[in-house]
Amino acid sequence: MDIAKHWRQRATRYRMQGQRHRETGEIRFPARPSALCEDPAVWEPYILSGRGEIYSFTVLRQSADGFVDLTPYPLAMVRLNEGPLVVAQLTDCEEAELSIGQPVEMVTRRLKDTGEDGVLVYGYKFRPVLS
């Protein structure tokens, strides 16, 4: 069922909430614990713009449990405008029109169906920026 596991990700998945370093201003995504050598409070919550460009992409024609109905689907590493890389599915696009460097924006979509007794997992995907 994994309900708590997915619920715990709500800020990451629905708002693209990451973290900003209070001293250096560095932004990272997703949120994670401060390192052993850091002040535990040095990273503060920060909501990213959800915009970036394609760093690399692939189209999966063989996938795993939970994603078989979606297959084939495109997946990308996106360089977010704030600096971090993220991996996410692409949506609302054709494989032939994808390219490295293409501007993309975050949208909320269904990610995964965990089965009859489970949860529908929603989260971020990216689509080409609508001009």
């Binding site: 997915h6 990700q9 692939t58 999966l60 997946l75």
Partner: peptide, 17 residues
Amino acid sequence: DTEADIGATLTSQWALL
């Protein structure tokens, strides 16, 4: 949480690289 749950596979990671 941030790779497998969103549909990345081990193969897809090598493909992206």
